[in-house]
């Protein structure tokens, strides 16, 4: 089972990284969602895997899964939602503002802006 979980975490991370490296906003947003899945599962896995041992206190329970990573991941899931919402709204606003959903400028344009900046700074006394 550990192999399945570890490989799933790796896969989710790889898909997330690949999508985040795309050039339009929507795949980037989906990429962050995948990365959240991967990271949350990873954090959860630091408590190791346990079957049929929920961390609900009960007399005579055989054992408990580690509750601390679960608590951390629970808030992480909700925060991930907040982040996804913010990023998608940012993407939406940027699309509405510019009419483009690209997340990169051409490298040439970036260099030009930088050069212009340097000139203005030097012109200042």
């Amino acid at each position: 089972m550990e192999v399945l979980v570890a490989s799933a975490i790796g896969l989710l991370t790889a898909v997330g990284v690949y999508l985040v490296l795309r050039r339009q906003t929507f795949p980037v947003v989906i990429g962050t969602v995948f990365l959240s899945y991967g990271v949350n599962l990873f954090l959860f896995a630091t408590g190791r895997l346990a079957v049929n041992q929920p961390p609900i206190y009960a007399a005579g329970a055989a054992g408990y899964a580690d509750p601390l990573p679960q608590a951390l991941v629970l808030t992480a899931i909700v925060i991930s939602f907040g982040m996804t919402a913010l990023v998608v709204v940012l993407a939406l606003r940027s699309f509405l503002e510019t009419g483009s959903d690209s997340v990169e400028d051409s490298p040439a344009a970036a260099d030009e802006t930088a050069a212009a900046q340097v000139t203005t700074d030097q012109a200042r006394p």
């Binding site: 490989s7 790889a14 990284v17």
Partner: peptide, 21 residues
């Protein structure tokens, strides 16, 4: 990009597996 992603995935999977075992 695929190479970066695969390397990242392999690294995380190995790390997760190391922790889980």
């Amino acid at each position: 990009d695929g190479a970066i992603a695969v390397a990242a995935g392999l690294g995380v999977a190995a790390l997760a597996f190391a922790i889980l075992t």
